[in-house]
Computed example of a mutant assay.
Amino acid sequence: MREEGQWTLTDSGGHRRTTAPYDVRIYHAEEFAPLCRTAGFTDVRLYGGWDGAQPYHDDSPCLIAVATL
């Protein structure tokens, strides 16, 4: 999956300073963990939140990877 959009940067007064496009590849857990291993990471663990309290599930609000290099 990909997400494309445009950043708009503003100054402290809210005036537009510049814009820049972005294009981000979004990985699913089944894709991301093997990519980490291929890159040389071991003990790849995926969590569904920043506190690491819950393992990653499809309905998790985010995907957090913790691994050893």
Score class of each variant (00 low, 15 high):
4 E>V: 14
33 A>T: 10
39 A>S: 12
59 D>N: 08
8 T>V: 15
19 T>L: 08
14 G>F: 09
14 G>H: 10
40 G>L: 09
8 T>N: 07
29 A>T: 06
34 P>H: 05
4 E>H: 10
17 R>L: 15
31 E>R: 04
12 S>Q: 13
6 Q>H: 10
41 F>Q: 05
25 R>F: 08
6 Q>M: 14
47 Y>I: 03
29 A>L: 07
42 T>G: 08
48 G>L: 06
15 H>L: 14
35 L>R: 11
41 F>V: 06
27 Y>V: 04
47 Y>A: 02
67 A>F: 00
2 R>A: 09
8 T>R: 15
13 G>P: 00
43 D>M: 02
68 T>E: 06
21 P>A: 14
52 G>H: 04
41 F>M: 10
42 T>E: 08
65 A>K: 02
40 G>R: 08
3 E>R: 11
28 H>W: 07
14 G>S: 13
36 C>V: 03
57 H>N: 05
21 P>K: 13
50 W>S: 04
13 G>W: 10
54 Q>V: 06
43 D>N: 12
42 T>C: 02
4 E>S: 12
55 P>A: 06
24 V>A: 07
26 I>P: 00
34 P>A: 08
21 P>W: 11
67 A>Y: 01
41 F>P: 01
53 A>S: 10
7 W>H: 15
16 R>G: 12
16 R>A: 15
23 D>S: 15
52 G>K: 04
44 V>L: 05
58 D>R: 08
62 C>F: 01
16 R>V: 15
11 D>Y: 14
54 Q>E: 10
68 T>P: 00
49 G>F: 00
31 E>G: 03
10 T>F: 12
26 I>W: 12
68 T>G: 01
34 P>K: 07
53 A>D: 05
54 Q>C: 01
32 F>N: 01
21 P>D: 15
6 Q>Y: 09
39 A>G: 11
46 L>V: 03
62 C>V: 03
57 H>W: 02
43 D>Y: 04
50 W>C: 01
4 E>W: 07
38 T>A: 12
38 T>P: 00
34 P>T: 09
64 I>Q: 00
28 H>N: 05
50 W>N: 03
55 P>V: 04
55 P>K: 02
5 G>T: 09
64 I>G: 00
2 R>L: 07
23 D>N: 15
45 R>Q: 11
42 T>D: 08
20 A>Y: 13
42 T>Q: 07
25 R>A: 13
40 G>I: 08
52 G>S: 00
26 I>D: 02
18 T>L: 15
8 T>M: 12
20 A>V: 11
8 T>E: 15
41 F>S: 06
39 A>Y: 04
18 T>K: 14
53 A>V: 01
57 H>Q: 11
6 Q>E: 15
2 R>H: 13
49 G>D: 11
2 R>K: 13
40 G>Y: 07
65 A>D: 01
58 D>N: 06
14 G>N: 10
38 T>Y: 04
65 A>E: 03
52 G>M: 05
29 A>M: 07
9 L>G: 11
13 G>I: 02
7 W>Y: 15
8 T>D: 08
43 D>E: 13
53 A>I: 02
46 L>Q: 01
69 L>C: 07
28 H>S: 08
22 Y>V: 09
3 E>T: 12
22 Y>T: 09
36 C>L: 11
45 R>M: 06
63 L>I: 02
48 G>P: 02
9 L>C: 09
18 T>H: 13
22 Y>Q: 11
33 A>P: 04
23 D>V: 08
30 E>R: 10
30 E>C: 05
11 D>K: 13
65 A>T: 03
43 D>W: 03
